[in-house]
Amino acid sequence: MEISFRGKHALVTGAGKGIGRATVLALARCGARVTAVSRTQADLTSLVQECPSVVPVCLDLADWAATESALKNLEPVDLLVNNAAYASLQPFLEVTPDQFDQSFNVNVKAVLHVSQIVARGMKARGSGGSIVNVSSQASSCALRDHAVYCSTKGALDMLTKVMALELGPHQIRVNSVNPTVVMTKMGRLGWSDPEKARSMTARIPLGRFAEVEDVVHSILFLLSDKSNMTNGVMLPVDGGFLAC
Rank of each mutant, 00 (worst) to 15 (best):
M1A: 06
M1V: 04
M1Y: 02
E2H: 07
E2N: 09
S4W: 05
S4R: 11
S4G: 06
S4P: 05
S4M: 06
R6T: 14
G7M: 04
G7E: 02
G7C: 04
K8I: 00
K8R: 05
H9P: 01
A10K: 10
L11P: 05
L11F: 10
L11W: 07
V12S: 10
V12F: 08
T13D: 06
G14K: 06
A15Y: 01
A15M: 03
A15G: 02
G16Q: 10
G16M: 14
G16N: 08
G16K: 12
G18L: 10
I19D: 12
G20N: 12
R21F: 04
R21Q: 10
A22N: 09
A22H: 09
T23I: 10
L25S: 04
L25I: 09
A26L: 09
A26K: 10
A26C: 05
A26G: 05
L27V: 07
L27M: 14
R29M: 15
R29V: 15
C30E: 15
C30S: 15
G31M: 06
G31W: 07
G31Y: 09
R33F: 08
V34C: 12
T35C: 11
A36E: 08
A36H: 05
V37D: 04
V37M: 07
V37L: 08
S38W: 06
T40Q: 06
T40N: 09
A42N: 04
A42M: 08
D43F: 13
D43N: 15
D43P: 03
T45S: 13
T45F: 05
S46H: 02
S46M: 03
L47P: 09
L47H: 11
L47T: 07
V48G: 09
V48R: 14
V48P: 11
V48T: 15
V48E: 07
E50F: 02
P52H: 10
P52W: 08
S53Q: 14
S53C: 11
V55F: 15
V55R: 13
V55W: 14
P56K: 11
P56C: 14
P56V: 13
V57H: 12
V57C: 14
V57N: 07
C58L: 04
C58G: 00
L59D: 09
L59Y: 05
D60F: 02
D60W: 03
D60T: 08
A62C: 03
A62D: 04
A62P: 00
D63C: 00
D63I: 01
D63Y: 01
W64Y: 07
W64N: 13
W64K: 15
A65D: 01
A65H: 01
A66E: 12
T67K: 07
T67I: 08
E68R: 00
E68F: 00
E68S: 01
S69L: 02
A70I: 01
A70E: 03
L71G: 02
L71F: 07
L71P: 01
